[in-house]
């Protein structure tokens, strides 16, 4: 188990060694996002911007156009909601080389309630031209994506989470943009996830296997770009597809998979996620259960859909 934010902080330090022009800009949350590790290692390249996210996005654009690689540290909700306009005009529309470390995504944000639970970010960021949208499954993929992002010239949105989650990829894993990862082969149903939710799908698949339902599990860490042909090919053998995400059922992973399938290989797609409502404060297990995202709830839903 390891939190993605821990991997984020550690990897920033690692990348700071490798890229002298890498800077970190923080919106007064570095001790939550773990970007404080970078300040400890490179105090002169850590720029505190205070509680003012719009300005942080604009400063990042200016720095990027001077050849720096700014990595930003704040919560998801403050990037995609508070600072959306400068993110759009100054960063995306100018193709600025800015890397957005969006910590605390989804529902599991540490007893904050709906104000800090961003369940709309994927819909917003996917629709934004020029933006790369990544949601790593675990600490290993977080690190791999960050290494890739430093080599890529352009804006990248990296969707991170707060609490420890299972490490499922091997240390030697290399990230390829657009690639669909097949985590488990199946026959009866394809489960498609993004972010650490994909690990809960693996768990659900194991439970289903004990009951004779063979579920394939796929992880879309790279929501944009996406190898659509690869996704179609992988999903072709399956009669049923179930997507699950810590996000609204509108416009996120479920929307993406439905868009791709409906154009080329129409079939039933069940979208599990937040059903057009806000989140709330509660323990993680309670939230995952309440919103149908825990492994047992996923298995229960899949069983019902397969049998129907």
């Amino acid at each position: 188990m390891k939190a993605l934010r821990e991997a984020f902080g550690e990897t920033l330090v690692e990348l700071g060694e490798k890229y002298p022009r890498l800077l970190v800009l923080d919106g007064d949350l570095a001790n939550s996002t773990k970007a404080d590790r970078f300040e400890a290692a490179f105090p002169d390249r850590f720029l505190e911007m205070g509680i003012a996210e719009q300005n942080m996005l604009g400063v990042a654009a200016g720095l990027a156009h001077l050849g720096f690689i700014p990595w930003l540290s704040s919560f998801t909700v403050f990037f995609t909601h508070r600072a959306l306009d400068p993110l759009r005009m100054l960063v995306a529309q100018t193709h600025a080389n800015v890397k957005i470390g969006a910590a605390y995504s989804g529902l599991l944000t540490g007893y904050t309630g709906k104000t800090h639970q961003d369940v709309e970010d994927l819909a917003i960021m996917r629709a934004m031209p020029d933006m790369v949208v990544l949601a790593p499954i675990d600490a290993v993929e977080t690190r791999a994506m960050m290494h890739w992002a430093c080599e890529y010239q352009g804006p990248v949105y990296l969707r991170l989470t707060r609490d420890p989650s299972p490490v499922v990829l091997e240390a030697a894993y290399r990230f390829e943009p657009g690639r669909v990862l097949e985590l488990r082969q199946g026959r009866d149903v394809a489960l498609v996830g993004t972010g650490p939710q994909s690990t809960r799908l693996l768990e659900a698949a194991k439970a289903l296997a004990r009951e004779g339902i063979e579920a394939g599990v796929f992880h879309l860490g790279s929501l944009k770009p996406l190898d659509e042909d690869g996704l179609l090919e992988k999903l072709r053998p399956y009669p049923l597809v179930v997507t699950a995400e810590e996000h609204s059922i509108y416009g996120g992973l479920g929307g993406l998979v439905s868009e791709v399938l409906s154009a080329a290989d129409p079939k039933r797609v069940i979208r599990i996620g937040i059903e057009d409502r806000w989140g709330e404060s509660a323990p993680n297990d309670w939230l995952l259960d309440r919103y149908g995202l825990s492994a047992p709830r996923i298995a229960e839903r899949v069983r019902k859909e397969v049998e129907s």
Partner: peptide
Amino acid sequence: LDISSGSLGQGLSAGLGYALGAKLA
């Protein structure tokens, strides 16, 4: 052009990025 603009009130932040970057570089 050193930045794109149109949505108002954003230019000073980009300018601040350039000025801060000039000091660092």
